[in-house]
């Protein structure tokens, strides 16, 4: 495997890690107003992701940084092209991050409700927009001969991309609900369990819809057909399994299964794209690829050494934190600033 391919794979891995981890904390944020009836319950819900969410979000920052370092052409085209969508996502992420930290610092209900709304909106918007973004990446967008996106904001809001967005939203929310069954207070876990019975079919339907539409809207399954297709089917089976296992109260495995679905979705997208990173709907000659959008061999070598040295370390200590905070979080009964 050459270095360009290695970095294409590594960026896919970073997105898998990001969507797997931040996926459930987006879901938890979205479910905050749905499952938390009282202030104490909402605090309990937030505490299930309290020690983790910031490190989870760092996966996105790292994926962005890796994209910049390994494929500056991809980073420049994607970020300047999906401009307003990314600006909205940033505002969401800002409100969410600040909301987690600020809500507890003042006991007035108005203050807490405000930040709860921010956490909800800030989780909902990115959870939706990531799907829209990847929908457009695989569908192809207008890109000119100097690698610049020439479409507008509304170009991104096409039906296919929106279905992808909704599918992502549903999947992350389901992933979050399954996480709350494992980690939440018993009342919260009970409500999350009831909700997954409705959420599961919705997510299944939307993902199946995305899969079907992809045959027409994209060439994902026409190119590296076998890999992209097999992986997508495995993802679908995993989602079905998640529903069945959750029904049998085998919650840990069910949660892992939505994780598999998320991973399969990313793998399927990247396998279908390879070796392209951005598809030009204007002219196939103007596609961005792992060759024409990449950094020099020297830079990729340096980055490979750094990644091989430090990714295992980061993984090790992050896994350790999940082990340290493996206990179920009980909802506080009284609310007072400490």
């Amino acid at each position: 495997m050459d270095l360009n391919t290695l970095w294409f794979v590594l960026i896919a891995v970073l997105f898998i890690g990001f969507f797997f981890l931040e996926g459930f904390d987006y879901g938890v944020g979205i479910l905050l107003p749905v499952l938390g009836k009282t202030d104490g319950e909402r605090r309990g819900i937030i505490n299930t992701i309290g020690p983790f969410w910031d490190a989870n979000e760092t996966w996105m920052v790292t994926a962005g940084g890796a994209m910049f370092a390994a494929f500056p052409g991809w980073y420049a085209t994607l970020f300047s092209g999906f401009y307003l969508a990314l600006a909205l996502m940033l505002v969401g992420l800002i409100l969410r991050g600040v909301g987690f930290e600020f809500r507890s610092k003042d006991p007035r209900p108005g203050w807490r409700n405000l930040w709860d709304v921010c956490i909800f909106v800030g989780s909902f918007v990115p959870a939706l927009l990531w799907g829209v973004a990847f929908g457009n990446i695989v569908k192809g967008v207008p890109i000119d001969g100097s690698m610049n996106y020439t479409g507008g904001f509304f170009n991104l809001l096409n039906p296919y991309a929106l279905v992808c967005g909704l599918a992502g939203l549903a999947l992350f929310t389901l992933h979050g609900a399954l996480f709350l069954i494992i980690k939440g207070d018993h009342d919260i876990a009970g409500r999350a369990r009831t909700l997954t019975k409705k959420l599961g079919p919705v997510a299944m339907l939307l993902l199946a819809g995305t899969f079907a539409l992809s045959f027409k809207a994209t060439d994902l399954f026409a190119r590296n057909a076998s890999i992209a297709m097999i992986v997508a089917v495995v993802g679908g089976v995993a989602l079905l399994a998640a529903g069945l296992l959750s029904g049998q109260k085998r919650d840990g495995v069910a949660f892992a299964m939505t994780g598999v679905t998320i991973a399969c979705s990313v793998v399927s997208i990247f396998a279908g794209l390879f070796p392209r990173v951005m598809i030009s709907s204007t002219n196939p000659e103007w596609n961005l690829t792992i060759t024409n959008a990449s950094s020099s061999h020297y830079t990729l070598t340096i980055m490979s050494v750094v990644a091989l040295m430090f990714v295992p370390v980061v993984l090790a200590y992050q896994i350790w934190t999940y082990w340290v905070f493996r206990q179920r979080v009980t909802a506080p009964t009284s609310e007072k600033p400490a």
């Binding site: 490190a55 760092t58 920052v61 790292t62 962005g64 940084g65 890796a66 994209m67 910049f68 370092a69 390994a70 500056p72 052409g73 980073y75 420049a76 950094s295 020099s296 830079t299 340096i302 980055m303 750094v306 990644a307 430090f310 990714v311 980061v314 200590y317 992050q318």
Partner: peptide
């Protein structure tokens, strides 16, 4: 990007995490 991206990515991997 060939130069500037690397320290940013390393910053995320070594420091932010």
């Amino acid at each position: 990007g060939d130069i500037f991206g690397a320290p940013l990515a390393i910053e995320a991997l070594l420091a932010f995490f």
